[in-house]
Simulated scan of single mutants.
Amino acid sequence: MSTSPFRRHTGTLSLLALILMTLVVSGCSGEEENWNGKDISGLMPGLEFELTDSQGRSVTAEQFDGKVRLLFFGFTSCPDVCPTALQKLNQATEGLPPGLQDDVLTLFVSVDPERDSPERLAAYVNFFGEGIIGLTGKEPQLRELAKRYRTTFGYEEPDENGNYAVSHSSAVYVFDREGKARLLIRADLSPKEIRQDLIALARTDTE
């Protein structure tokens, strides 16, 4: 029995549709797998805040538009997580190609406004290199910002000298030039892996 031309064409179109669908799915999966960090596109709100920088000036997220931004919550008295993370981020950004070094900015948000004055913040972030902006604010502002990105922080009981620890997340959120949340950098990523993601994101935004 011969097969009608209509059926032959239908079978061919179905096969082509299947091939195209496979290519599309493969392409999307491949793009996701290219990131070393976790892809959070569409899962988190855009970058938005009004805080005080290390010069005592009021700043908003929009003032840093046009740059890839890394957002990290911490405090200057942090004994391990913060210095380790900032050192790693600085190593990652220092190794960026010359044309991209000014396009990436780290925003270190102190959740310890009681102790972290603008002067203290400035000395702290400057120690870890250029391209790091120290920010803080009143506790309600900081609570609202942390909640926006599904995290929190807390203060432990002070010791006899008035010193206390602050619990906070070690997550680093990466936003593209338009302020859209794109990646979550895990603590186990190396500076090289972070740098690869930053280069890919910065170059994608300029294409």
Rank of each mutant, 00 (worst) to 15 (best):
E119T: 04
Y173Q: 04
L15V: 05
Y149F: 13
Q87H: 11
T152N: 09
I40N: 10
T12L: 15
P5H: 08
R69T: 11
D39L: 14
L15A: 10
S29P: 00
F73H: 03
E156F: 14
E50D: 14
R69G: 10
V25I: 04
N90C: 10
L16C: 05
F6K: 11
L183Q: 03
E31I: 13
N163V: 12
G46P: 09
D159R: 04
G27D: 08
M1P: 14
R148S: 15
R150S: 05
M21N: 14
L184C: 08
V172D: 02
C82D: 04
Y149R: 06
T84G: 09
Y164H: 07
V111W: 12
D176M: 09
E157G: 06
W35P: 00
L183R: 05
T22P: 05
V104C: 06
D159L: 03
R182C: 04
I194H: 06
Y155C: 07
D116H: 03
H9R: 14
D39H: 08
S14T: 14
E33A: 13
L135D: 00
N161F: 12
T93H: 06
A61M: 02
G99P: 00
N163W: 07
N36D: 15
N90A: 15
K138Y: 13
L105Q: 10
L121D: 01
L100K: 01
Y173F: 14
E130M: 12
L107Y: 08
L13C: 08
N90P: 06
L20G: 07
S117K: 00
A165C: 08
L51W: 08
V125G: 00
G95H: 01
V109A: 02
K138G: 09
P45I: 09
T93V: 06
R150V: 06
D188C: 10
F6D: 15
N36R: 13
